[in-house]
């Protein structure tokens, strides 16, 4: 393996427990920030070449439209059941069938998708903002602060994430909307990964030759951060976020599966699957459609992540 390859910071490190804190490799070739060199048009062309990523993007856009615009045009109340139409198999009126209380599975499934995407996006943003700011500050300033932060990050990684998530969800008052609890809990459990990633990237960017050159020419800290460091860390962070979304979705549905996430009757893929699995062999439609949609959504986001990885130089 070439030395350059090992020095690339892997955005997936944010999700890997126990991987060493990335140190800036010495003597990296000076290279201008990528976005300055190419621009988003070029990025999009590279992305488009990755066929699964394009398919994933199309799927996600369709799912977004259906789950957010659907309720605007149709009556999509997820709580309202028709007591005369319980456990109906898929038909024209109920394409995915209905459950024990006569609620339409398609409607509940779309709401589950909507909840999953809201929770995933917001909690990733929470984790990224908290972790990113801490990591960036830690990397830019260094010193004792950096040391303390990194020890804290190590402690976070030592604690099994699922257990921490569960304990946090129990500790958060029940009176709040459970989706808000999820933002907080997933944000708190995932900030350490983003902090570690951003810190490594900032240190790497800070030490580039052209940054030093800019400094010598009298550039201010603000100018250096805006012009050189941000464009340089944007790529890997975007990739990390795109992989963070499916993992936040898994966290949300996992917690809902064991009754700590979204509370019924609010649908989540987790509780749809848990409820449906009980009657699985008798009424497979209860669990099949939510499972399939969920699996496809996860795959779609992962493909998008792979495509973005290709754009931002993590192509394998």
């Amino acid at each position: 393996m070439e030395p350059e390859e090992s020095s690339v910071i892997d955005p997936l490190d944010a999700f890997r427990p126990g991987s060493p804190t990335a140190e800036p490799p010495p003597g990296l070739p000076a290279e201008p920030p990528k976005s300055a060199r190419t621009g988003w048009r070029h990025d999009f062309r590279v992305f488009r070449r990755h066929k699964p990523a394009v398919a994933g993007l199309v799927y996600v856009v369709l799912l977004l439209l259906a789950s957010f615009l659907g309720p605007v045009f149709f009556d999509m109340d997820y709580e309202k059941g028709d007591p005369l139409q319980t456990l109906v198999s898929p038909c024209a009126a109920h394409p995915f069938g209905t459950d024990q209380q006569g609620r339409d599975i398609l409607v509940r499934n779309l709401h589950a998708a909507r909840n999953a995407m809201i929770v995933a996006v917001v909690s990733v943003v929470v984790g990224l903002v908290v972790g990113g700011l801490i990591g960036a500050f830690s990397g830019y300033v260094g010193g004792a602060f950096d040391l303390v932060v990194m020890r804290l990050v190590d402690v976070m990684f030592a604690f099994p994430q699922i257990l921490l998530l569960i304990l946090l969800l129990v500790a958060i008052p029940d009176s709040m909307d459970r989706r808000i609890s999820m933002f907080v809990a997933i944000g708190v459990t995932s900030w350490a990964g983003y902090a570690r990633l951003v810190r490594g990237l900032v240190i790497q960017a800070k030490n580039e030759d052209y940054v030093e050159a800019a400094r010598c020419l009298g550039a201010t800290d603000f100018h250096v951060i805006r012009k050189y460091i941000l464009p340089n860390i944007a790529g890997p962070v975007i990739v990390a976020v795109s992989f963070g979304i499916p993992s936040a979705m898994m966290a949300e549905s996992g917690m809902s599966l064991i009754g700590l996430g979204l509370r019924p009757p609010m649908p989540s893929w987790g509780n749809l699957i848990f409820d449906g699995a009980r009657e699985m062999l008798g009424f497979p439609h209860l669990v099949l459609w939510p499972s399939l949609t969920f699996a496809l959504t996860l795959l779609a986001f992962t493909f998008i992540g792979d495509g973005l990885g290709g754009v931002y130089g993590k192509d394998k």
Binding site: M250, S253, G254, L257, I273, G276, A277, M280, V287, L288, S291, L292, F294, A295, L298
Partner: peptide, 8 residues
């Protein structure tokens, strides 16, 4: 995730 896989 495993629970979805198991169901499918």
């Amino acid at each position: 995730p495993p629970y979805v896989l198991a169901v499918l």
